[in-house]
Design a protein around this nucleic acid. Sequence first.
DNA 1: TATTGTTATACTCTATAACTATA
DNA 2: TATAGTTATAGAGTATAACAATA
Lengths: 161, 161
Amino acid sequence: MTKPADDHSWGSTAFLLAQVGAYAAEAFRARVSRLELTPAQAGLLRMLARIPGRSQRAYATYLGMPPSRFVMMVDALEDRGVLERRRGTDDRRANELHLTPTGHRLMRELGAVARSHESDLLAALKPSEQRGLRELLVRVAEAQGLTPGAHPGYRTKPHTE
Amino acid sequence: MTKPADDHSWGSTAFLLAQVGAYAAEAFRARVSRLELTPAQAGLLRMLARIPGRSQRAYATYLGMPPSRFVMMVDALEDRGVLERRRGTDDRRANELHLTPTGHRLMRELGAVARSHESDLLAALKPSEQRGLRELLVRVAEAQGLTPGAHPGYRTKPHTE
DNA sequence: TATTGTTATACTCTATAACTATA
DNA sequence: TATAGTTATAGAGTATAACAATA
């Protein structure tokens, strides 16, 4: 149909993967910034929706973020009324984190953003090709021992635009 | 053969692409750091090998890097004897950049590193699957209007380990 | 004494913009 | 006056480590 699409100018597949991956991350960052969220905040919200009520330490460790930075992130989200800290019942040192009703609403908006991000990014591929790409990426991820859902990009701050 | 490999826990394909891409970039960074190079320096060397003799401005612009940072990068590489500045013949304001013999040797080592990086990263895929992955990524990259060889990761400094 | 969350400090990195030399 | 390269400076963002409360 089209040209070979295997142009040598794109460099190695590893490089191409890193380049397209960085583009995907940047495009997502631009989208969620309209909800006034950073990618790391979006990741935390998603996790709070699935597994609520854990300690700050637990979430920070899972996201690979130092506790000091995690505090600032939680501060910002609590000030906006998106989540709340609840003093731990059994261990009163710990803060258990929960989404507020506002937070749940924001999560739904975030879901819509994520879906349009996905479809725009992969618009050039047919559904069967999208599944094929996904399967290949999963195989690579598993072989490299990556943890599902743990995005290293959470560790670095997004650059201001 | 194996299990479905389409585990839902990996999240969206866009997320997976960003995650695997970030992993690939980090793995490459770790490898080239053994040659005492940053990814951005490696990118510059590759470009100097292909298109030598341009002005600093030209390379900096192409790599999407402010001139001030580019100067520091060139300083480091010149101190190591990897490249040299030559005062421009027609425009004496400009510095034309060239690899030294040491630089060419380093480029060959870099090539070997890049090849082993590639084969290790994609070890889980058969050659035909590797080609398939590459073709899908090229289609996505072209549809999104990405520039071949221009890695946004060049813009950010690698975190010290 | 160890651990949770927090705050403060010191450090790294970066871009902006001043500066010089050529054009 | 404008542009190439350089240097200086000021700002943002980060981790490290000190701190208070609880275990």
